[in-house]
């Protein structure tokens, strides 16, 4: 302890006195900037695991067909699986209205000026939803291939959707999202004859960014490939534990 002013009684080992007589100290923080978000995401994840809910974070640019894929999936698998949806958009409840029309439980989050969902928003959305045991929760993120990449929501899998009307170099231009996803859906393949989109090239590009990425090609309009997506979903749903 300092005899002059009595400072230095703090025995915390991560405080070091730098300039004693100006009372400057170094605090070793070593904390992830997204620490708070990550804690809340883990809390969400724990909740989902406890209720055996498969939470999927759907990300893409605007207009890739996230909502159309959901509508189709919710209707086709209505009698086989139990679903709920969280819709993220800057404004309007248009997407939630579309999901509501399929008679699925849905909550809309409007991010206002925000460009992504975060774990805190999802936590509050989930609180009001009364999710059922052994269900699938789709979290449709804000249409944006950049910002949502950074924010863990507590999901089990992240699904990135790209459509054939976009550029086949998209995985290289927006690598973070493809790097952090586990499944890539290439949508609107019924339009392939009309657009200069090289599907083999996009797959190769996506694999360059993330060698573990699974890829499914489908069309919500023609229905081609949907079976693969449904099988993937069913394979991810854990059989409920028998008590």
């Amino acid at each position: 302890m300092c005899a002059t002013c009595g400072c230095g009684t703090d025995d915390s080992h991560d405080l070091k006195e730098l300039d004693h007589h100006h009372h400057k100290k170094i605090v070793d923080v070593e904390k992830d900037v997204l620490h708070e978000n990550n804690l809340l995401a883990q809390r969400n994840r724990g909740y989902f695991e406890a209720k055996n809910i498969l939470a999927l974070n759907l990300v893409s640019s605007p207009g890739s067909g996230k909502t159309s894929l959901l509508e189709r999936t919710l209707i086709d698998l209505k009698n086989e699986l139990d679903f709920a949806v969280i819709e993220g958009d800057q404004q309007t409840s248009n997407d939630a209205d579309r999901i509501h029309a399929t008679e699925t439980k849905v909550t809309q989050i409007n991010t206002g000026k925000g460009c992504h969902l975060d774990a805190h928003m999802v936590l509050h959305a989930v609180q009001g939803m009364k999710l059922t045991q052994n269900s699938i929760l789709f979290i449709e993120n804000v249409g944006n291939l950049i910002c949502p990449a950074m924010f863990d929501l507590g999901e089990k899998e992240r699904v990135v959707i790209i459509s054939v009307t976009e550029g086949d170099d998209k995985p290289l231009k927006y690598p973070d999202m493809f790097y952090s996803s586990t499944l890539c859906i290439i949508n609107k393949i019924d339009l392939l004859p009309y657009v200069p989109f090289d599907i083999e090239k996009v797959k190769a590009n996506a694999k360059k960014v993330n060698h573990k990425l699974e890829i499914i090609e489908l069309s919500c309009t023609s229905g081609e490939g949907l079976e693969l997506w449904y099988n993937w979903l069913k394979s991810k749903v854990l059989a409920p534990e028998i008590a």
Binding site: H23, K24, I26, V29, D32, V33, K208, H211
Partner: peptide
């Protein structure tokens, strides 16, 4: 090969503060 694992470059953290 593209079978790579990123070991540095993903950091985003507050390392330290100098306070008074």
């Amino acid at each position: 090969e593209h079978l790579i694992d990123i070991i540095e470059g993903k950091e985003l953290r507050v390392k330290s503060l100098i306070v008074s």
